[in-house]
């Protein structure tokens, strides 16, 4: 038992995590490629044309995984942030910082593809639907987190302040979601309904799941690459970084 604990905490130090992350990155890129190619093949060539929406619906294979990841990454980010506050590990803050830009990217992608999808389907780039609005606010939360971290020079303080903000945000996300939902039902008639899901063809569902896995693996790979860069940046003064082959060159 104690042996296992020590093993886990071994990788909590940037020095031992750096090479581990380096070893994991190619694997996650490979998984991204495999899932991505399979998902794209399934979604473009195998999945049938939608009876109502025609070919335009195929953007769902980007849109839905991006939305899922944008929400999931915020949760993971908040979990790392909470871990960092509780255990005072440096790596947790770095992980949270490394995840934030990817999360913001996913939220932006989801809004962007949503607009592209909305134009042909509803005739509008933007409707004040509950999901769209809460996704927009999630995007703002990511931007706030990134801006706060960028504004504080001392990295340890930036980590802790960011962690508190991420935790406050994660408590607020369900409140914001439901408030926007009720606001929406009060204001808008059922002109546009995103919630009624048409019975989806099995292949469509598979394509979507494979694309979601591809996005997931991509997020991990990119976050690991970013965390390696952050480790190097913050630990430049240490001996082990100076000893690294890549740094010596």
């Amino acid at each position: 038992m104690s042996n296992r604990l020590i093993n886990w905490f071994k990788f909590a130090s940037p020095q031992s995590f750096y090479p581990l992350a380096g070893k994991m990155i190619p694997w996650f890129w490979a998984l991204t490629a495999v899932f991505g190619i399979a998902g794209l093949w399934l979604s473009f060539f195998v999945a049938p044309t939608d009876a109502v929406q025609g070919e335009g619906y195929r953007i769902i294979f980007i849109h839905v995984p991006a939305s899922w990841m944008s929400m999931f990454i915020y949760l993971v980010m908040a979990a790392w942030a909470g871990l960092g506050l509780a255990l005072n590990t440096r790596l947790s803050g770095m992980m949270a910082q490394a995840l934030a830009p990817t999360g913001a990217l996913m939220a932006f992608l989801s809004l962007w593809t949503g607009a592209l999808w909305g134009k042909p389907m509803w005739g509008a780039w933007w409707v004040w639907d509950a999901r769209l609005t809460s996704e927009l606010i999630l995007f703002f939360l990511y931007i706030g987190f990134i801006a706060l971290q960028a504004a504080i020079d001392d990295p340890r303080r930036a980590d802790k302040a960011g962690a508190i903000l991420a935790l406050v945000g994660v408590v607020n996300i369900p409140i914001i979601y439901f408030s926007v939902k009720w606001w929406n039902t009060l204001h808008q008639g059922a002109s546009v309904s995103l919630t009624k899901s048409p019975s989806m063809a099995q292949t469509m569902l598979w394509g979507m799941l494979l694309m979601a896995l591809a996005f997931w693996m991509y997020s991990i790979a990119v976050a690991l690459m970013r965390v390696r860069a952050i480790i190097l940046e913050r630990e430049t003064h240490t001996e082990w970084v100076k000893e690294l082959e890549a740094v010596k060159r």
Binding site: I137, F140, L141, I143, G144, A147, L148, A151, I152, D153, A161, I164, L165, V168, G169, N172, I175, I176, S179, V180, W182, W183
Partner: peptide, 25 residues
């Protein structure tokens, strides 16, 4: 959170305004 931080005022609004959404609604 923004105490003594560069550009605190603008940053403050960026952090806080999204959290005000439920109160506004």
């Amino acid at each position: 959170l923004t105490l003594g931080v560069r550009g605190g005022g603008v940053l403050l609004s960026l952090l806080v305004l999204p959290l005000y959404v439920p109160a506004l609604i």
